[in-house]
């Protein structure tokens, strides 16, 4: 019955594309958990902070302008005008802004390791988890002070709106921005896999993930590894922030996208990069199909809770998630 519905395939495609967006957020969680066993509560806020910083650079905004102006009685707001003005920034400027934001995220990762994680080495996982909750609040506050709380439009030249070609060919309304997100996600996963499998640093990361003590004993620096992992997670957060921010504006509710990543992690497993992608796709398609066909019969608004029901359903059969590592404890 569903298969003959002209909307069925559109719901499936829209679910797959939404799932990719969830996966982009989930990837950041996986990277950090895989390498350090820390569930990073601040991952959603990292995405927000990265997007805020990118818009700040693109708009030439003076960071902490309100604080500076209050303290010094000045009236600074912007360093420079965005090149291109209302017609969109040129590609070189977008690339430069993304590079500057990446540098900020790497610096932030270094600060997190030095100030938050290093003093907590050898503490219980729950302590580190609590530290990331604190980090989320601090980052949200700092983001507000640095860039302000108003909604910002993020335009880095990505195509958006429905694709006329797809409408003409299939009658389906598919957003070009979501297609871009899917392409970006594929590039990201391939890059992360290559980095993890074929580079010296990647091998060191996997060694730390497998056994901290053994990795330390062969001279791998835990601090450096954490810095790298948090930097990579920061860059992934930037990508997620760009994609979500480009679709609905950069605003503080962006940090709530982390809620969408949780069922993806439960389903895909906390330690698997392909798991984050497959989990996202299953959650995306599952929740969209349920909302579209069953939702109207039970009052609608099912997406938020159904994603968790779906994830829990999978957990009944694979408690470690679809691609999670099976934990075998010998007594």
């Amino acid at each position: 019955m569903f298969l003959t519905d002209p909307f069925f395939w559109e719901v499936v495609i829209s679910g797959l594309l939404a799932g990719v967006m969830y996966s982009l957020v989930a990837l950041g969680f996986v990277l950090i958990f895989k390498a350090s066993g820390i569930f990073n509560f601040a991952q959603g806020v990292l995405a927000l902070f990265a997007a805020l910083t990118l818009v700040g650079f693109m708009d030439g905004q003076v960071p902490f302008a309100h604080v500076i102006n209050e303290a010094l009685g000045t009236n600074y707001h912007h360093w420079y005008e965005t090149p291109g003005g209302g017609d969109g920034a040129p590609i070189w400027f977008v690339a430069l802004s993304i590079a500057a934001t990446t540098a900020v995220m790497i610096l932030l990762a270094w600060l997190v390791v030095k100030v938050v994680l290093k003093p907590l080495v050898n503490q219980e996982g729950i302590i580190l988890f609590m530290a990331t909750i604190g980090l989320a609040f601090v980052l949200e506050g700092v983001g507000d002070l640095m860039w302000g709380a108003n909604i910002k439009v993020l335009d880095i030249g990505l195509p958006s709106g429905p694709s006329d070609w797809i409408i003409d060919q299939t009658g389906m309304f598919v957003n070009k921005l979501e297609i871009s997100a899917a392409v970006v996600a594929v590039i990201l996963v391939v890059s992360l896999t290559l980095f993890s499998q074929y580079t010296k640093m990647g091998r060191a990361l996997r060694a730390v993930a497998d056994d901290h003590q053994a990795a330390l004993s062969v001279g791998i620096s835990l601090e450096t590894i954490w810095w790298i992992v948090w930097s990579v997670a920061g860059i992934v957060a930037l990508v997620a922030g760009i994609m979500w921010g480009a679709s609905s504006g950069v605003q503080f509710s962006l940090s709530l996208i982390a809620l969408k990543a949780l069922p993806v992690l439960m389903l895909g497993g906390f330690t698997s990069i392909p798991g984050a992608i497959i989990g996202g796709l299953i959650i995306g398609v599952g929740e969209k199909l349920f909302e579209f066909y069953i939702g109207p019969m039970i009052g609608g608004a099912t997406e938020n809770w159904f994603a968790y029901v779906l994830a829990l359903g999978f957990l009944l059969f694979r408690p470690q998630g679809l691609f999670g590592e099976r934990i075998i404890e010998r007594i």
Binding site: F7, E10, V11, S14, G15, A18, M21, F173, W244, S248, S253, L254, L256, I257, K260, E287, K288, E291, F292, G295, P296, G299, G300, A301, E303, N304
Partner: peptide, 21 residues
């Protein structure tokens, strides 16, 4: 036609597919 959207409402694909339908 009643179409609820859960908080915060960042994802509304199904709602607008219902509207198309």
């Amino acid at each position: 036609l009643l179409l609820p959207v859960d908080h915060p409402g960042q994802e509304q694909k199904s709602t607008w597919l219902q509207i198309r339908k």
